[in-house]
Design a protein around this nucleic acid. Sequence first.
DNA 1: TAGATTGTTAATCGATTAACAATC
DNA 2: TAGATTGTTAATCGATTAACAATC
Lengths: 211, 211
Amino acid sequence: MNKTDNQISMPVIRRLPRYYRCLSILSENGVETVSSKELSQILNITASQVRQDLNHFGGFGLQGCGYDVPHLLDKVRELLGIYRAKRTVIYGIGNLGRAVVCHFDFIKLGFEICGLFDTNEKLVGENIKDLTILHDSTLEDFLLQNSVDAAILCIPTDSAEQVVDRLYAAGIRCFLNFSHYDITGKYPDCIVEDVHLSESILTLGFLAENL
Amino acid sequence: MNKTDNQISMPVIRRLPRYYRCLSILSENGVETVSSKELSQILNITASQVRQDLNHFGGFGLQGCGYDVPHLLDKVRELLGIYRAKRTVIYGIGNLGRAVVCHFDFIKLGFEICGLFDTNEKLVGENIKDLTILHDSTLEDFLLQNSVDAAILCIPTDSAEQVVDRLYAAGIRCFLNFSHYDITGKYPDCIVEDVHLSESILTLGFLAENL
DNA sequence: TAGATTGTTAATCGATTAACAATC
DNA sequence: TAGATTGTTAATCGATTAACAATC
């Protein structure tokens, strides 16, 4: 469907969110047009790279003038799938899950949280952001009765495997994974984004000690 | 001091936490020795890369036998600075800050949380994990009376600049930054690890739409 | 000694940067 | 037309992989 489909590399994909943020701000400030040079200065990359990146998605610059901000923003939103909210459950409403639910404006990120699940009976029934925490045991029912596209796992690594098994069995193939469980290892057909916060902390430790 | 000091590249550094995790588990299971091939299979990288990586830190493999797990683990811990707990304040005890405080065993990661700060009067005095939330206005005093090595910022991008200014003025040069404020842009001598969770979510969105 | 596996050099691969012709 | 800036090809750079001699 897109030029993008196959050949676009991960480094480019991982810069897309940054373009999105930057263009959103420019757009909010009423900026109509931006050059690759200006973008490159804001993002701390080279102008060459900006042009290379944007060309992956079909050239919508105008020689001599730069890029049309609203148009480019719309294209980037389209690429990121922001216009198609993916219905998403969050599994595990401990401190981390709670922070995730509360901290993001998911709609602006292309997701819509539609269910919260936990095994802890004490949490069940509590409301967070107009959603009620449901019990683990009702997960399969819920997934059967609602069309759900993705899951966010805010659980320890140990319990991840069995939860993933159940979500996979119910048809979920898209995961944001805060645990260290290797989802793709067992289910190669899943799309997984791992968030390993402890690795960021350890990396900072290394840099602090060795730099 | 180390072979590492200058020349070691970021891709290698970012794999170190994964070696650490992997070796910790092997060590807990009483494994004495591991080959580059075995490590490579666990970590889903090539054996060549494992050997290249480990050699950056001074060869402690034994030809024909592999690597001594406890010894290698000790070396990796040393590199990551896990034996020298960095005294750290967390600024911003909203949902995210709270999750960060509670979710990690910081000592195992080479950090020690010694202060929690927030501007919200209602939170001040509350205890989390044997620490009391202190008011923003006491930040400078605290930093003067305690030796603090690092700060974790769990605040919105808008308020980050002024907080960083104050922390920098008090001598802090090491940051884990959950906001989108560009610390290094203003203070190039700081060591910063950015965690942009929204970028992970957006990336997942892209992959879900385009793969 | 023979087998295994490291340390290290060389080859490959891919991403970034530079350059410049095309064109608004 | 002249100036600016893109689109795109070619050059560079760096990271990963392969290969193999060294050696336990």
